[in-house]
C-alpha cells in the first residue's frame, strides 16, 4: 500500500490537463493514517480468533459441504425463492393499489386503505401466518354462491397460507413505500400531464409511477431481502422451505448446527444475488434523472485498479 502511494506522483506525471495546458503535479507526503493500521490488525485478529473457535468446536464441516447440494435442501431453496418472489409480487401490487387508494380524494377508499395498513402493519407477521393457517376454524367453507364452493382447508394449502400471510403483510409496508414515492414526484408533472388532456389514470401510470420508481426501488430491494429471510417463518405453517428442509435433516441426522450453516450459506447466496439485481434495477430507473449513470460495480473495480484513489476526479 505504501509503495503504491509513493509511486503515485509518477503515475500521474506532469501532463496536459483537460484543457491541454501542461502543469506540474503536486508532490506531497500523504497524511499517514496510523489508526487505520492498528484497527485493521485488531479486526483481523478478532476474525482469526472467531474462525479458530469455530474450527475447534464440535462441528462436522464435512457434513456441511456434503449436504449443501442435497436434493431436499435444493427443493427447500427453490421453495424459498418461489414464496419470496410470489409474496413480494403480491405485496407490490397490493402496495400500489392501497397507496393510490390512500392518496385518492375518495374518503371511503382512503379509510379502507388506512385500516388495511393499520391492521397488517400493526400485528406480527408470525401471528398473521397462524391466523391464515387456522382460518378454517372460522370459515369452514369458502362459498361464492353458484360460482365456487370448497372447504377452506382445501384451498388454504401451506403455499396459499404462506402467500397470503407474507403477501398481505408486505402489501401494508409497500403501500407506505409507494405512497412516499408518489408524493416525491413534483406536482408540476401532474399538472403538465393534465394540461395535455391526460386522464388521472394515464397520468398516474405513464408519468407519476415511473418517476416514483426511483424512490420506490431502493427500499423495495430492502423489503425483498427482508422477505427472503422472513420467509423462514412459514416453516411454522408446514411449508417446507429452506429452513424447514435444513432442520428436518438436522434433527434426523443429529447435525443441527451443521444444517443451520447450510441454510445460512444459501440465505447469504440468495441475498447477494438479489442485491446485485437491485443495483441494476436502480440504474434502470435512474434514466433521465442524472446526466451520467453511476458506474456499475465492475466498472468501478476497473477504475480503482487503474487509478489509485486520491482525488475524487480520478475516479470519474
Amino acid at each position: 500500500m505504501t509503495d503504491k502511494i509513493s509511486k503515485d506522483p509518477a503515475a500521474a506525471p506532469a501532463g496536459p490537463g483537460p484543457s491541454g495546458t501542461p502543469y506540474e503535479a503536486i508532490k506531497a507526503i500523504p497524511v499517514r493514517h496510523y489508526g487505520r493500521w492498528v484497527s485493521g490488525v485488531l479486526v483481523v485478529a478478532l476474525l482469526g480468533w472467531l474462525v479458530y473457535a469455530f474450527s475447534q468446536g464440535n462441528i462436522m464441516w464435512a457434513t456441511v459441504w456434503d449436504k449443501l447440494f442435497d436434493p431436499s435442501i435444493l427443493s427447500g431453496l427453490w421453495k424459498t425463492v418461489l414464496i419470496s418472489v410470489s409474496a413480494m409480487a403480491l405485496g407490490l401490487v397490493l402496495g400500489i393499489v392501497f397507496a393510490v387508494m390512500r392518496l385518492s380524494k375518495n374518503p371511503v377508499t382512503g379509510a379502507v386503505s388506512w385500516l388495511y395498513i393499520w391492521f397488517f402493519r400493526g400485528t406480527p407477521v408470525y401471528v398473521q401466518l397462524l391466523v391464515w393457517f387456522n382460518l378454517a376454524l372460522i370459515f369452514e367453507y369458502i362459498d361464492l354462491g353458484p360460482i365456487y364452493k370448497d372447504e377452506t382447508s382445501q384451498v388454504l394449502t401451506p403455499f396459499m397460507v404462506a402467500l397470503l400471510g407474507l403477501g398481505l403483510n408486505e402489501g401494508a409496508y409497500m403501500a407506505e413505500i409507494v405512497r412516499a414515492g408518489i408524493q416525491s414526484v413534483d406536482e408540476g408533472q401532474t399538472e403538465a400531464a393534465h394540461a395535455l388532456g391526460m386522464s388521472q389514470t394515464k397520468t398516474m401510470r405513464r408519468i407519476v409511477l415511473p418517476q416514483a420508481m426511483r424512490v420506490i426501488v431502493p427500499p423495495t430491494g430492502n423489503e425483498f431481502i427482508n422477505m427472503l429471510k422472513t420467509s423462514s417463518l412459514v416453516s411454522a405453517v408446514q411449508y417446507t422451505e429452506l429452513l424447514r428442509a435444513s432442520s428436518n435433516i438436522g434433527s434426523t441426522a443429529g447435525a443441527v448446527m451443521e444444517m443451520l450453516f447450510v441454510a445460512s450459506i444459501w440465505y447469504l447466496a440468495l441475498t447477494s444475488v438479489f442485491s446485485v439485481g437491485q443495483y441494476y434495477l436502480e440504474r434502470r430507473f435512474a434514466r433521465g434523472s442524472t446526466r451520467n449513470l453511476p458506474p456499475t460495480p465492475w466498472q468501478r473495480v476497473k477504475t480503482n485498479m487503474t487509478t489509485f484513489k486520491r482525488s475524487p476526479e480520478a475516479t470519474a
Binding site: 413534483d186 408540476g188 408533472q189 399538472e191 403538465a192 400531464a193 393534465h194 394540461a195 395535455l196 388532456g197 391526460m198 386522464s199 388521472q200 408519468i207 415511473p210 418517476q211 430507473f285 434514466r287 433521465g288 434523472s289
Partner: peptide, 24 residues
C-alpha cells in the same frame, strides 16, 4: 374528470418551470 380532460386537449400550456417528463 374525463370531460375536463377532453376540454384540455385543445388548450396547450407552457409552464414557467418547463415540467418536461424527465424519464422520457
Amino acid at each position: 374528470d374525463s370531460e375536463v380532460a377532453a376540454q384540455r386537449r385543445d388548450i396547450g400550456m407552457v409552464f414557467q418551470r418547463f415540467n418536461l417528463f424527465p424519464h422520457m
